[in-house]
Every structure is written in structure tokens, then in C-alpha cells.
Design a protein around this nucleic acid. Structure first.
Length: 889
RNA sequence: GCCGGGGUGGCGAAAUGGCAGACGCAGCGGACUUAAAAUCCGCUGGCCGUAAGGCCGUGCGGGUUCGAGUCCCGCCCCCGGCACCA
């Protein structure tokens, strides 16, 4: 053991040993009941590890070590989300084939993962782009096709003009591409969809099972995204036509106030309308304006509409009302038609005002005392009396026999009535759309169907899977998918009739791969099925999943859907794939820039190319380029990224500080779910701490080897030794609890406190009594073991130096330290004494002192008498072990 | 607008209703050193005070309680999601 802490040397040594001994390789072990599946979201193999990865995987790795040391059989795998755009971009720019580029990147990144010392069972590695994996994407697709869950239709899809491909609703949220940020266009394209909407209700319902285990904000996002809305359909017959216009409403109780039916400009009912030409021109204009404006989210168009000339019959009242087409009704939601009730809906109110349509109030506030009736119920048009819509629930008025009922009751009863009369029904709608998975790209799993002139759409037989991607294609970056121009791929024969046929050339969204990859880790080599259900039953559901919050809706919704589907085809027997989810915050760093030539343009500097001096408040005093000494401006903290050039290369950190210190800092600097501000100075502190522990072990190692491991053999403990032992056991209790709850920052803080306590224990190895040496040994062993999940290399090294074998902690049977409840409690405690809730002083008492003992100790203390200044004592509040509060008048 | 999460020193952050600011960063002072680095020791919320000590302090205003950063009510602000969703 070197006196100095050489991170690189230690890390290299233990990485080699782990590799040689297969330290993290696991198998199903029925004898061990306790198993744990620790999973982190798999990376896209861009080729380079960034700080976000380091943080994400350090969080998961720490938990996997913790559970291993606790004796769990821990599955901790890693793989590659290796299909997707960048590989094709590389092909276009540099002429390298996607497969080659991807494999090189994986090779390189795996090396970086190993250099970080992450404890994966690499034998289980999977990669989406390998045929033995994507074969099962295709297999799942066929299963969905069989069950009618996959279907093809022409629809207006979200199209990213920059990447020339379709995006799903989830991927174009906010009107921009999730990957490149380009404004999304609408295009009519025929594509494949998966019926995730069939599972909308379950996706909501099953959230109960994971509540508490998943962050509230993720569940909220999913709830918002699914957007369940309960109400009713009502059919409005169109006068002089066979047709009805079906509307969806959540407020059927307001139907007597309907002044019109309003449909989307592209609603089919418009076809027969007398004024259809007007409506078509209007629809055209709306479409053009929307395309031109590239609407930002939150922007509302001014409400506009045209009368279609149709008349509809209110099925409840028999009243004839006009049918309008308006831009504020969306074809994509509900039925594309609404009943307009201006008195009780803000939007209808606005519309009615603009076009002077009648406004009729049919709901009153229940408590009349609070509000005077502000209109004359006899007149029809009360728009003057209503400054805005009344949208609350209330009591029905002017609603024939329904008058006098409460909104909540009326909603239920009127929907039931409509159903009974055959002109409607109770209904629930969702905002969630089916998942469009077709991508006009090369680098994805080919959708396994064949188009035959005679037989139509023919699924590829299971026995022909996988449909392999061709090795080569032309990547021009323009026109259609590169796959479509590979003749050998496209041209095939029909599996049904044998005639010449063409393959589907669209590939699947890469989110298909990530929907089920973690089940494959359980049985990665299976050639006959995506996985063996029994193996999956042993390992899954995932106990802990760690990843970025940016996947709250996309990946995490899709994988929940996929899990339910796998359950329905008998592969699984549970509803939810992940018991506990943690979404870690981003790694952010200061930005540095100089104003560029163009106004508003900025030239960003990497932090490593900027020399910063700070004032005594830590603010930046000056920043200059290390290149030429020219001044540089300081921008806000932003997520580390290429676009603002504020990324810190983990390799530089590993070189300068070692993997252990880098990992330790990334876990200590902030709670896992907060953003982490990367500051070089912080990592110094982590390294200092490690060096202190290391040098303590170094100084004590010879002495510790011949120190008994049994407390009873150590003899009488000094006061200082007793204090140290208390600190040790208290720390174990705290750290164990912190690990269970992924509070790594406080776990590290607690260990630093123990290390400080060791520093305060002044005994030297030479002069230490057997009992002193025992107390040090106990503290150091606990410290080293508890540090292992954060700093595995140096911990292993210290463990070995403390007299354990070279086989490493796991092989050597090292276990997470346990604590003694009694030792964790102090023998004597300082009890704060309050007078009227304000702390005046402290009382030294036995930790086990009871309520009466504490009270009498306080009252007999003469200082207390002085503090109360002879005032009358009203009562004495005593919290055993915590405080005494003397209440005086 | 609706839903969710927050607001504590110069900074990152701690605090089962019970000593606010643990731990760390930055800063200041000291030891060691020819010197620097490294290391070690001490100080470090604000105000008053030489000191002992005192007063104030967890976004704002109320409340509950012997006692509130924490619980309740009403606001303000920030972050995230959804949003002409009928």
C-alpha cells in the first residue's frame, strides 16, 4: 500500500481483479430469496460518456453495491439504445455505415464505463441494433398485429422537416421535435400505429400500484398526458338530413343553454352544408394560417367561425339551433364537434359575443345569499347581465323537467336518459393518441410486413424473423428513406401466394426497443423467445429504475403499455414494470461566451478554456480566455451540452481526480433529484475526504491487523473510545437509512462526520490500548464498507489493507455493517431547557432518563430558577430524551 | 387557467413539530515551510457589543401549539407538465 493515494493505480488494479473474477456476474439462485433488480436507463451510444451519464450511472451503481453488500442477489445490467438518427447522420456526413459507426461507439463507451468502475454484468449486454434483439421487436409487432393492436392508417402526422421523419405525439410535444427542436409540420402519411389508447384506462388506474414509488411529478405528467375526461356523447340530428352530429360534452347539464352546434372546420358534416364553400374557404384559411404561424404553445388564435347553414335539433328540448364551423373546435379531440353553451363556457361565451349569438343562462349558483340574481329570468338574451361565463356547478334552471336538479346529479341522469332514448351515452375521452411507430429511416427495426398486389398486407411469418437490415445503403440525406432504395431488401415474395411483393420500408420508432429491453437482460441469449417467463419472473419487476425526467412521458409511458401487453399475452403476471423510479436532475454548468459578429449571436467558450477569478463572495470577478487572455462574459448555469459548449469531459476528471472522487462528488453535491451544479472546486473536497480516510487506514493498518474483532476481548473502553463507538453506530444507522431512500448526499455527510470523529480521536496507533484500537477498527471498517458504493476501488484497496484477503469484498463475503441500537444512542445527552419555548441552557442527563426524572432535574436546577425569574410555573412540558420546556406566566 | 414540485447563509445543501444552517464549497486567521503547494488547527447567518451576552432571522400575512422551516388557512414568486381538450 502506498502512503499516498494514487487513484489511477488503485482503480486499474481493482478493475482488473473484478474483470478476472467476474465479480458482478449473477445467476438465478433459488436458494437466495432476496433478489434485487437495479436498473438505469440505457444510453444512446454516441461514443462519449458525459457528466449526465456519470451521475445517472453512479446513482444506480451505488445502490447495486449497497444491495449486494446486504446480501441480495443483484441484477445490474447495461445495454445500448443503439438505433436512431445520429448513426445515419454519421453515414451521411462521413460515409461510414451505421452499423460500423455504432459498434465502434459501443466499444469505446463500454471502455469508459469500465474505467468508471461501474459494476455491470457485461455478459448480459444487449444492443437494439443487433438482429438477435430487434428480431423480438418484430415478433412483438406481429403479436400486436394478430390482436388488432397494430394497424395502419393515413393520418396527419407530426413531421420533423430537419430529420425528414415522422414523430409521435409524445415526441413533438409543444410543437417542436424532441430531438432537434425544429418546428414540427403536419403531413398526411400512411403509417403504423399501436393502440396504446386501448390501455388508457389501465395506464391511469394502475398508477395506484406505483404511487409512492414514483415521483409525483412523473405521475402528474402521465396523468396530464393521458388526459382523461368524463362526460357524454349527445347526437344532434341535422334537419333535412339523415345525419346526426355527435358532440362530446362534460357538461350535459347545460344542454338547455345550447345556442349552436360548433364543429371543426374539417368536420365531415360540412360536406352537405348549404354554405359548404364558405366553410371550405374558411377551413383552408385556418390551415394556412396555422402552417405559417408555426404556433407557439400557449398562443391562442382569435376565435373565428362561419355559419354552415345547417340546422340541428337539440334532442332534449327539440329546439332548432344553427351549426357553425369554428377554429376553436379541434377535429383531433372528442368528436370534433361541441355544443356551444355560452352562458357556461368561456370559449363559447367569447364566440357568442363576437357573433352576437344568444346567451341563455341555465345554471344558477346554489346559494342565493352570496349573489343576487343578476338578470331577469324571463328574458331570453341575458348577455348584458353576464359579464363572463358561469362555469361552476350549480342548480339547473330553464331546463324543462330537469330544472331544480343539481349539476352533478343532472349530469349523471341526463346522460343515462340520452342513452335510454337512443341519442347519446355516457362517455369518457382521452387526450392520449395511438402511438405512431413508423419512421422513414434506415437505422431501426424493419416493420415485418410485406405488401402483395393480390393478398394485400401480409405479416412476415414468425419463422422468417428477423427481417434483417441490409449491410449497405446509400445515405444522401435527402428524399426517401435509404432503405427504400435497397432493391434486395424491398423486393421479395409474398409469403401467402408466392408472387412478387414488396417489403415495408419504414422502420420502428426506437422507443419500441426501450419499451422492453430490461426484460431481455434477464435472458439475453434466448433464441426462441424474447425471454423465458420463468427467468423474468425471478428478476422482475424492476426494483429501482434511475434515469432522466425527460423520459417521464415518452419512454416511461410506452414501457408501461408494453408491460401490460406482455402480461396480456401471458409473458408476465404483473401490471407495472418498475416498482420504484428515481428521476435524477440534470448536470448544469456555468456558460462562458463572447458576443459574436452577428447581433445576438454568441460564441461559447468551454470552461476548461476560461480562467476565472472570483471575489470573496464567490462571484465571478473576471474571466478571460486561456488562449489569448481576452475577456469572456459569464452566462447562466445551463445543462451541459454542445450548443453552449459548457460540457466537462469525464475523462479529464478521472485523470485529475480518479473515478472514485468523481463519483463521490457527483453524489454528494446535491440530492439525486436536484440539478447538480458542476463546480471544479467541489470535487477537490471529495478528493480531500478520500485522502484523509485513506491515510488514516494507512497509519493504522498494521495495528488493526492484530486487533481482535470481538468487542468483549478488547477490555475497558475509555470515554473517548465510547464516544467514537457511539458515533460509528449512529452513523451506520443513518447511512443505512439514507441508502434505502437514495439520500446519498446526506449519507456522504454522515460518513464525513464519522471521519471527523476519527480525526478527533487523538490516540496514535503506537499508544492505543487494545480497546482504543478496537474502536478505531470498528469505525474504519464501517466507514470503508459504507463508502464502497460510492468509491468501490479505493474501498476495496483499503479493505484489503486492513487485513482481508485479495479476493475482494464480494468474494470474501464482506457484509454491510450492522449497528447496535444501544451503542447508537448516547449514554448522556444534553437536554435543552426552554422557558416559554425559548432555549435558555442545557442539562446533562442520562439518555434513558424518564419524564419524571427529567422534570425534577430541571425544577431542582438553580439556573432554571434564575431563568424563570420567580414567575409562576404554569406547566412543564417534557419530551423524553429531547427537551424540557418550562412554561411560566 | 388546471395539475404537480419548490422558496432556508456568499454557494451546494441539512433539520421524526423540539438547540435552524449538519456536511461540504468559497472566504478569513493561524501552524508547518527559506517560499509556495499540499497538509493540519481555528473562525465564518445578520445586527449590537472589547467581551460575557443580547436582539433579529427559513418568500409574505394570519392561525393552531408550551413550542412552527416543518401542521392549517389566505396570498406572492420560481420551476416542471398540460392547455381553445369541450
Amino acid at each position: 500500500m502506498d502512503e499516498r493515494y494514487y487513484a489511477e493505480k488503485i482503480e486499474e488494479k481493482w478493475q482488473r481483479r473484478w474483470e478476472e473474477s467476474g465479480a458482478f456476474e449473477v445467476e438465478i439462485d433459488p436458494a437466495r430469496e432476496k433478489r434485487f433488480y437495479c436498473l438505469e436507463m440505457l444510453p444512446y451510444p454516441s461514443g462519449f460518456l458525459h457528466m449526465g451519464h456519470v451521475r445517472n450511472y453512479s446513482i444506480g451503481d451505488a445502490l447495486s453495491w449497497f444491495k449486494r453488500l446486504q446480501g441480495f442477489n443483484v441484477l445490474h445490467p447495461m445495454g445500448w439504445d443503439s438505433f436512431g438518427q445520429p448513426a445515419e447522420q454519421a453515414a451521411i456526413k462521413r460515409g461510414i455505415m451505421p452499423r460500423e459507426w455504432t459498434e465502434q461507439n459501443i466499444e469505446h463507451m463500454r471502455g469508459q464505463f469500465k474505467r468508471m468502475g461501474f459494476s455491470y454484468d457485461w455478459r448480459r449486454e444487449t444492443a437494439a441494433h443487433r438482429p438477435d434483439f430487434y428480431k423480438w421487436d418484430q415478433w412483438f409487432f406481429l403479436k400486436m398485429l394478430e390482436r388488432g393492436l397494430a394497424y395502419k392508417k393515413v393520418s396527419a402526422v407530426n413531421w420533423c422537416p430537419r430529420e425528414e421523419t415522422v414523430l409521435s405525439n409524445e415526441q413533438s410535444s409543444g410543437g417542436v421535435c424532441w430531438r432537434c427542436g425544429a418546428a414540427v409540420e403536419k403531413r398526411d402519411i400512411e403509417q403504423w400505429f399501436l393502440r396504446i389508447t386501448d390501455y388508457a384506462e389501465q395506464l391511469l388506474e394502475d398508477m395506484r400500484e406505483i404511487e409512492g414509488g414514483w415521483p409525483e411529478r412523473v405521475l402528474t405528467m402521465q396523468r396530464n398526458w393521458i388526459g382523461r375526461s368524463e362526460g357524454a356523447y349527445v347526437d344532434f340530428p341535422v334537419k333535412d338530413a339523415e345525419d346526426v352530429v355527435r358532440v362530446f360534452t362534460t357538461r350535459i347539464d347545460t344542454i338547455y343553454g345550447a345556442n349552436a352546434v360548433v364543429v371543426a372546420p374539417d368536420h365531415p358534416a360540412v360536406e352537405q352544408a348549404p354554405m359548404r364553400d364558405d366553410v371550405r374557404r374558411f377551413a383552408e384559411r385556418v390551415r394556412a394560417e396555422r402552417a405559417a404561424a408555426a404556433r407557439m404553445p400557449g398562443d391562442e388564435e382569435e376565435k373565428e367561425g362561419v355559419n354552415t347553414g345547417l340546422l340541428a335539433v337539440n334532442p332534449f328540448s327539440g329546439e332548432l339551433i344553427p351549426v357553425w364551423a369554428a377554429n376553436y373546435v379541434l377535429m383531433e379531440y372528442g368528436t370534433g364537434a361541441v355544443m356551444s353553451v355560452p352562458a357556461h363556457d368561456e370559449r363559447d361565451f367569447e364566440f357568442a359575443q363576437k357573433y352576437s349569438l344568444p346567451i341563455r343562462r341555465v345554471i344558477e349558483r346554489v346559494s342565493h345569499e352570496q349573489e343576487q340574481i343578476d338578470h331577469d329570468p324571463e328574458t331570453e338574451d341575458q348577455s348584458v347581465a353576464m359579464p363572463h361565463a358561469f362555469t361552476d356547478y350549480g342548480i339547473l334552471v330553464s331546463s324543462a323537467d330537469w330544472s331544480g336538479k343539481l349539476s352533478a346529479d343532472a349530469k349523471r341522469e341526463m346522460a343515462a336518459f340520452a342513452q335510454q332514448q337512443g341519442f347519446g351515452e355516457p362517455a369518457t375521452t382521452y387526450r392520449l393518441r395511438d402511438w405512431g411507430i413508423s419512421r422513414q429511416r434506415f437505422w431501426g427495426a424493419p416493420i415485418p410486413v410485406i405488401y402483395c398486389d393480390a393478398c394485400g398486407v401480409v405479416p412476415v411469418p414468425e419463422s422468417d424473423l428477423p427481417v434483417l437490415l441490409p449491410e449497405r445503403a446509400e445515405f444522401t440525406g435527402t428524399g426517401q428513406s435509404p432503405l427504400a432504395s435497397v432493391e434486395e431488401f424491398v423486393n421479395t415474395t409474398c409469403p401467402k401466394c408466392g408472387a412478387a411483393a414488396r417489403r415495408e420500408t419504414d422502420t420502428m420508432d426506437t422507443f419500441v426497443d426501450s419499451s422492453w429491453y430490461f426484460f431481455r437482460y434477464c435472458d439475453p441469449k434466448n433464441e426462441r423467445a424474447p425471454f423465458d417467463p420463468e427467468r423474468v419472473a425471478y428478476w422482475t419487476p424492476v426494483d429501482q429504475y434511475v434515469g432522466g425526467v425527460e423520459h417521464a412521458v415518452m419512454h416511461l409511458l410506452y414501457t408501461r403499455f408494453w408491460t401490460k401487453f406482455m402480461r396480456d399475452i401471458g409473458l408476465l403476471n404483473f401490471n407495472e414494470p418498475v416498482r420504484r423510479l428515481t428521476t435524477q436532475g440534470m448536470v448544469v454548468a456555468e456558460t462562458f461566451y463572447r458576443e459574436g459578429e452577428e447581433p445576438g449571436q454568441k460564441v461559447y467558450f468551454n470552461p476548461s478554456a476560461v480562467e476565472v477569478t472570483r471575489d470573496d463572495k464567490g462571484r465571478v470577478a473576471s474571466a478571460v480566455s486561456t488562449d489569448d487572455g481576452s475577456p469572456v462574459l459569464v452566462g447562466p448555469f445551463e445543462k451541459m451540452s454542445k450548443s453552449v459548449n459548457n460540457g466537462v469531459d469525464p475523462r479529464e476528471m478521472i485523470e485529475a481526480y480518479g473515478a472514485d472522487a468523481t463519483r463521490l462528488f457527483s453524489l454528494f453535491a446535491a440530492p439525486v433529484d436536484n440539478d447538480l451544479r458542476w463546480q471544479e472546486a467541489g470535487i477537490d473536497g471529495a478528493l480531500r475526504f478520500l485522502r484523509r480516510v485513506y491515510s488514516t487506514v494507512y497509519r493504522w493498518r498494521d495495528r488493526l491487523r492484530d486487533t481482535p474483532s470481538d468487542a468483549s476481548a478488547a477490555g475497558e473502553f475509555s470515554e473517548a473510545a465510547r464516544r467514537l463507538r457511539h458515533e460509528t453506530h449512529r452513523t451506520i444507522a443513518r447511512v443505512t437509512d439514507d441508502f434505502e431512500n437514495l439520500r446519498y448526499n446526506t449519507a456522504v455527510a454522515a460518513m464525513m462526520e464519522l471521519s471527523n470523529a476519527l480525526g478527533d480521536f487523538k490516540t496514535t496507533p503506537e499508544s492505543a490500548s487494545p480497546s482504543d484500537a478496537f474502536a478505531v477498527r470498528e469505525a474504519l471498517e464501517a466507514l470503508v464498507l459504507m463508502l464502497t458504493p460510492f468509491t468501490p476501488h479505493v474501498s476495496e484497496e483499503m479493505w484489503e489493507q486492513m487485513g482481508h484477503g485479495p479476493e475482494g469484498m464480494l468474494r470474501g463475503g464482506a457484509r454491510w455493517p450492522s449497528f447496535d441500537e444501544a451503542l447508537a444512542r448516547k449514554e448522556q445527552v444534553e437536554i435543552p431547557v426552554q422557558v416559554n419555548g425559548k432555549v435558555r441552557g442545557r442539562l446533562l442527563l442520562g439518555a434513558d432518563a424518564g419524564e419524571d426524572e427529567m422534570r425534577s432535574a430541571a425544577l431542582s436546577d438553580e439556573r432554571v430558577r434564575a431563568w424563570t425569574e420567580g414567575k409562576e410555573i404554569v406547566k412543564v412540558v417534557v419530551v423524553p430524551g429531547r427537551l424540557v420546556n418550562v412554561v411560566v406566566r
